[in-house]
């Protein structure tokens, strides 16, 4: 799957989904089930829902997103500026809970496990879309096949949230509106003076002071080191930094403050600018934690 980036449409034609959505059998069944209350199809749908593998077994094939938000966990400063910018342009407020990108810090843990960044992966097999009973979660053909949620169609069932295979889930619940939402790469941003979306700007990327966020065209490697696509240790987390210049004072990279010899800030042994296909090294290969003295 990695590196296979064609957007060939192999799904069946949409049935009332619109906007490029390729409706799965299950979605069709669930949708029909509402109309055929008590009927045999509804019973079948119910039985399918009881099996944990039902969504995956019956998933359709969706056109791939043309854009992906990737990040640099090793150089993120944890300022949460991306989160505040996200909620600002989407909701007109700043909020940590409503942000569609989530960064959380564990400041007493060792680098690089002291921070975690969670972005919507724009999954090639978007279970949020696949399982949405109303078509609110959809693949938007007019927006580069981004996986989006149409707030008007969302009934607040949270199926998309329960379906998200990532931990923690990347679909966001807005308790005030009682609607689900998710990263749309800034397509629907009523509080943003710029055109967002796949051909436009992203507030989180703009807000990042560390160049630790970027939107890329190529679908990142979907597998992580454990072969389970639950943590973004695969293609989404990558070195986005240009080479560091030497700084003049006794602070910053390249400078050695008096009495210091062991600081290796940001040292990533195989650090390469974005574009290199390598993923974030596995935890056992993480460089800086071992540079710190034992507690």
């Amino acid at each position: 799957m990695a590196g296979d980036n064609d957007n060939t449409n192999t799904a069946v034609e949409a049935v009332g989904g619109g906007d490029g959505k390729k409706v799965s059998r299950r979605a069709f069944v669930v949708g029909s089930g509402a109309a055929l209350a008590g009927g045999a199809l509804a019973t079948t749908a119910h039985a399918a829902a009881q099996t944990t593998e039902a969504p995956k077994i019956q998933k359709a094939v969706y056109p791939r997103s043309t854009k992906y938000l990737v990040y640099d966990s090793m150089h993120c400063a944890g300022c949460l500026g991306c989160m505040l910018a996200c909620s600002l342009v989407h909701e007109g407020v700043t909020s940590l809970s409503l942000s569609r990108i989530q960064v959380h810090r564990s400041v007493l843990s060792k680098y690089p496990l002291d921070m975690q960044q969670n972005v919507c992966r724009q999954c090639p097999d978007p279970l949020c879309v696949d399982n949405c009973p109303t078509g609110a979660a959809h693949v938007s053909a007019e927006n580069g096949n981004i996986r989006m949620i149409d707030e008007a169609k969302c009934i607040g069932c949270q199926t998309c949230i329960k379906s998200c295979p990532q931990l923690p889930h990347r679909t966001i619940w807005n308790p005030a509106k009682k609607k689900s939402t998710k990263c749309d790469l800034c397509v629907n941003t009523p509080f943003y003076n710029k055109k967002g979306g796949p051909g436009g700007a992203q507030a989180c990327v703009e807000a990042c002071p560390r160049n630790a966020l970027k939107v890329v065209d190529e679908m990142p490697d979907q597998a992580d080191h454990r072969g389970v696509a639950q943590n973004d240790t695969a293609g989404y987390d990558r070195n986005l930094q240009p080479p560091a210049p030497k700084m003049p004072f006794g602070f910053g990279p390249g400078a050695k403050p008096k009495g210091k010899t062991g600081a290796k800030p940001g040292a990533k042994p195989d650090a390469k600018p974005d574009g290199a296909p390598d993923a974030k090294p596995a935890p056992e290969g993480k460089p800086a934690a071992s540079a710190a003295p034992a507690n």
Binding site: G78, A244, G252, A271
Partner: peptide
């Protein structure tokens, strides 16, 4: 000051740019 160039691993207060 020009501190914290690209490549550095700083940790910031909320929103600090």
């Amino acid at each position: 000051f020009g501190f914290g160039s690209p490549g550095e691993v700083t940790s910031c207060c909320v929103g600090c740019g």
